[in-house]
Design a protein around this nucleic acid. Sequence first.
DNA 1: AGAGGAATGTAGCGAGTGCTACAATAGAGA
DNA 2: TCTCTATTGTAGCACTCGCTACATTCCTCT
Lengths: 187, 187
Amino acid sequence: MSPAPSRPEKLSRETLLPLMAAHVLEHGLGGASLRPLAKAAGTSDRMLVYHFGNKETLIVELLDHIAGVYSATLDMALGDIRPATRRECFDRVMDQAANPAMRPFMVLWWDIVAGAARNLPGYEVAAQKMIARQLDWLIRQMPVDDPDPEGGARLLLTLMEGSLMLGTVGHAKTARDGLLAGDLSPS
Amino acid sequence: MSPAPSRPEKLSRETLLPLMAAHVLEHGLGGASLRPLAKAAGTSDRMLVYHFGNKETLIVELLDHIAGVYSATLDMALGDIRPATRRECFDRVMDQAANPAMRPFMVLWWDIVAGAARNLPGYEVAAQKMIARQLDWLIRQMPVDDPDPEGGARLLLTLMEGSLMLGTVGHAKTARDGLLAGDLSPS
DNA sequence: AGAGGAATGTAGCGAGTGCTACAATAGAGA
DNA sequence: TCTCTATTGTAGCACTCGCTACATTCCTCT
């Protein structure tokens, strides 16, 4: 357990990024301007520009850092109970996604997707990392006897992301009903 | 064909909304501030506030209007060729979604989803309308002999949205491969 | 024609934006 | 001890933000 430093000895990118990441996870990327970020990190906008050069590269490094935090959070949530069927796997993983610890990432995630769609620098790279990590994690969650765990995980990932999106726009039931109308079994 | 008025007789919400919608479809909702919106609509920020009261209700009405435009665009793209299988239906609809005419909606869509995730006023309502309309449209695209067109359409919608999201973050191949690993046939 | 309300223009306020110039401090190497 | 560089503070610039006060024009109804 690292001793949370109320006054860190030295301020650098490495010490600033976690604090700013926490702020962004709570308040989103849209309104992330230098002065609030600096306040959250215990510095001044002046110093953020000093350490990162400008806001754009700050955001790029921050997104990369957040992708790393996301990976670590996923690893922490890793359970080793292998489900018997793909559907059971889907249900379990969706339960995990509904975990309150994942909520800030969920909300931030759509910010990142929107930024990637607009080709904002750093957004697509961060999104790719987060998806890749999620896919790795999902493969390890697949049923042991699945003949095609990689393909199955890709299928479940697609369904999960679609379901999560429909959920955030108030169409969770649509996704749930859809899942009942299909067969997730291999090939 | 309505004669595109270079100088509309009267400026009201109804005449302003399409012009602002066009601006938002091109430049996104994030940077949509009063002065650029007013310029796009041929007015002043002063008049936008006069007509809509404040920015928040302007955005709410604008999102509602855009949901309507989206419906009309979907109707225009409606083809009557019924596919034979769900998979064929999926492929055709994904081709439709790749239509350049849909591109601005796609990019804007993630803005709306992100706003809905943050509970910004008007965003979730607009997203719900757009999804509902898309579902209606999809049901009419299902194979004629499908035993459960509503359920199947919900399944395809979930898969589509997941695939589209993975596509916008550079994981289109992941979604494609996933689709090959599953059976979309009924029940 | 005159009155009165709707519509619009001009100017600006206070706050926030990214960023910078300049100076002060601190700490390490000579 | 004395530089010299890395770090930090203060102040501010030029800009945009949503919004408003005030004045003016336009149109309609009597």
